[in-house]
């Protein structure tokens, strides 16, 4: 069965969704990712969806669940590279993806993750405040 590869870079897990993201693959990703976060004590997950051609409410829910699961496992999740057409479509559909952090590019997303992780470990500013800067 097709599975989406999960790459580990330092504290961060990198996922690039490139195949036709259908239901089974999506559910498998959610499972794989949860395990990998724990196995690697990852502090951040970066999901690149720039190659995705559409997101429907089912996928929206999976992406939301990934983010929530990550949060429970003490890990930040950032969605990067959403195409304008998809952003418009899912807004029209009514999907808002609350609580999901987004960034324009993988580079921006990586920076956002590093900042969030750093502020957390330093304990100076809470992650919440750091996030607020970008929200």
């Amino acid at each position: 069965m097709d599975r989406i590869p999960i790459l580990k870079i330092g504290d961060v897990l990198l996922v690039t969704i490139q195949v036709d993201f259908h239901d089974r693959i999506a559910i498998a990703l959610l499972e794989d990712l949860s395990e990998k976060i724990v196995d690697n004590s990852a502090k951040g997950v970066l999901i690149d969806i720039s190659a995705l051609e559409m997101v429907d409410s089912f996928m929206g829910r999976i992406l939301g669940n990934i983010s929530k699961t990550a949060k429970l496992l003490d890990c930040h999740c950032v969605l990067v590279g959403m195409q304008p057409a998809i952003a418009i479509t899912i807004t029209e559909l009514g999907i808002t993806l609350p609580g999901i952090y987004t960034a324009l590019t993988a580079e921006d997303g990586m920076k956002l993750l590093t900042d969030m992780v750093k502020s957390k470990t330093n304990g100076k500013t809470s992650a919440k405040k750091q996030e607020a800067k970008w929200r």
Binding site: D20, H22, D23, R24, E53, M54, V55, D56, Q83, P84, A85, I86, I88, T89, I90, E92, L93
Partner: peptide, 30 residues
């Protein structure tokens, strides 16, 4: 579930054929 993907691909082909804008194509496929 695989049939959903097939429907999506067929729809995508037709929308491209009709020259829908990328945004509209995405809307229709979704």
């Amino acid at each position: 579930e695989d049939d959903i993907l097939d429907v999506r691909n067929s729809v995508k082909r037709v929308t491209a054929l009709l020259n829908f804008s990328l945004v509209n194509q995405t809307k229709i496929i979704s």
